[in-house]
Design a protein around this nucleic acid. Structure first.
Length: 419
RNA sequence: GUGGGUGUAGCUCAGUUGGUUAGAGCGUCUGGUUGUGGCCCAGAAGGCCGUGGGUUCAAAUCCCAUCACUCACCCCA
């Protein structure tokens, strides 16, 4: 049996309503903030991600689906969206068309990691990018939008965490402060953290090793070493969030893994999924556009994991899905009127109703059972004496009431069903 | 890449200290008279017991290997 590739999943018809429900919500909320959808190719030149995300990051160094195509060009299935959107922004000179470009996306992503709860090799994100402004109100928007979406789905068990990484200069100064603090403890740190002491010292805050955490508890914090402009920006973000009624925590240890972040970083985590608890993450990246060869432009964005959000919804049983059950089931009483049944169904389908009928000339009982099981609101019965009199029978399933109509007056049948 | 757990019907799972034709519930299909659903009743279909090897008179059951799935670490959405 050929099966779906390790770490990928079919989204089956029985689950699709959850997905379209979420996607519609995303489009509505993003639309209300005037974000326009962008769709980029699923694969890009490998160097886009290598340069954009950072060679040293886990994503680039060990998780990308990279392969050579038949022309021997190295291409990569997109592991995240920001680099691709920024590439498109630069390529299409969007900065010349308008000073602020607000875009959102819903798209599959690919990372070759070990799958677990809330993590797949092909997974799906929605997110947004805003390029061309460093207004703190935009930072806040990037938190408000996913927050509103997530809470609209009924999720309760969530926490919004924010932090600021400031600008590179103050971060470099801080790194030296942190180095001075950690140097005497170096031998007590875990091996991984000792490596990070050299490569990416900020990430030691992420360590889950107990002893590392104990050491980091008393470590000086980046937020205490921000320059004034960064602090003022951060204050602006916080004020806007408070005004928006978004509850948040400041997490000075929230250090995102991707190289391109500056200033604000944030995460929305859920207590209702497994250990992969981040439903959403993002931050400001004022240096990325330049780094990818564009004219310098500030940017900010977020990405949210659709599978994780839906998982949280399932665990909290929070989803209220729209009804997609049948309006009408057309029953063929004599089991020899397939064409007439098909024609009647078409009439109501073209009126916008969801209509089904049997295709196997099964017994009336079986057809009724199916109508019942598919939760049809009405059935129409075709055949027998009534048909000889040129009539059909409309039955209201909930009450069992039946009423005859002339077959040439389907419009009044429709109006009766619509109420 | 590193650990742990689990593989029996479409789904959820039973299956005694190894012992005859491998079970239940749910679901599916058919029927309980001639043209009517839900409840109830009856019946049917559907399993190389993940795969390969070994031990044994005998393996779903014990041993080994392998594959798959899954959770966690790492990291991230």
């Amino acid at each position: 049996m050929i099966k779906a590739i390790y770490g990928t999943k079919d989204i089956l018809p029985e689950d699709i309503l959850k997905w379209t429900h979420l996607e519609n919500l995303v489009r509505n909320v993003m639309g209300s903030f005037n974000y326009k959808e962008i769709r980029t190719p699923v694969f890009e030149e490998t160097r886009l991600f290598a340069r954009g995300i950072g060679e040293a990051t886990d994503i680039v160094s060990k998780e990308m689906y990279t392969f050579n195509d038949r022309s021997d060009n190295s291409v990569t299935l997109k592991p995240e969206m920001t680099a691709a959107v920024v590439r498109s922004f630069i390529e299409h000179k969007m900065d010349k068309k308008q000073m602020l470009n607000k875009m959102f996306y819903i798209s599959p992503m690919f990372r070759q990691e070990r799958p677990q709860a809330g993590r797949l090799r092909q997974f799906h994100q929605f997110g947004a990018e805003a390029l061309g402004s460093d207004s703190p109100q935009l930072d806040a928007e990037m938190i408000i939008m996913p927050y509103d979406i997530i809470t609209s789905l009924g999720l309760k068990n969530i926490v919004v965490k924010i932090n600021s990484l400031g600008v590179p200069e103050s971060r470099e100064n801080y790194k030296n402060v942190l180095k001075d603090y950690l140097a005497p403890h170096l031998n007590d740190l875990s091996e991984e953290s000792r490596k990070r002491f050299e490569t990416n010292i900020l990430r030691i805050f992420d360590s889950k090793a107990e002893n590392d955490q104990k050491i980091m508890e008393d470590a000086p914090l980046l937020i205490e070493h921000l320059d004034n402009a960064s602090l003022e920006h951060f204050e602006g973000v916080k004020r806007t969030l408070l005004e928006a009624g978004i509850p948040f925590e400041i997490d000075p240890k929230l250090v995102r893994g991707l190289d391109y972040y500056t200033h604000t970083t944030f995460e929305i985590v859920s207590g209702s999924v497994g250990s992969q608890s981040a439903l959403c993450g993002g931050g400001r990246y004022n240096l990325l556009v330049e780094q990818l060869g564009g004219k310098p432009a500030p940017g900010i964005g977020f990405a949210a994991g659709i599978e994780r959000i839906l998982l949280a919804c399932e665990n909290e049983e929070s989803l209220k899905l729209p009804d997609d059950s049948l309006d009408l089931f057309v029953v063929d009483i004599n089991r020899d009127n397939a064409e007439l049944v098909s024609k009647l169904s078409l009439f109501f389908r073209r009126k916008g109703l969801t209509v089904e009928h049997d295709y196997a000339a099964r017994s009336v009982k079986a057809q009724m059972r199916e109508a019942n099981r598919s939760n049809a609101k009405f059935t129409i019965m075709v055949g027998g004496d009534e048909l000889e009199r040129n009539e059909i029978v409309l039955k209201t399933m909930e009450t069992g009431d039946q009423k005859s109509f002339n077959i040439d007056n389907l419009q009044s049948v429709f109006e009766t069903m619509r109420g």
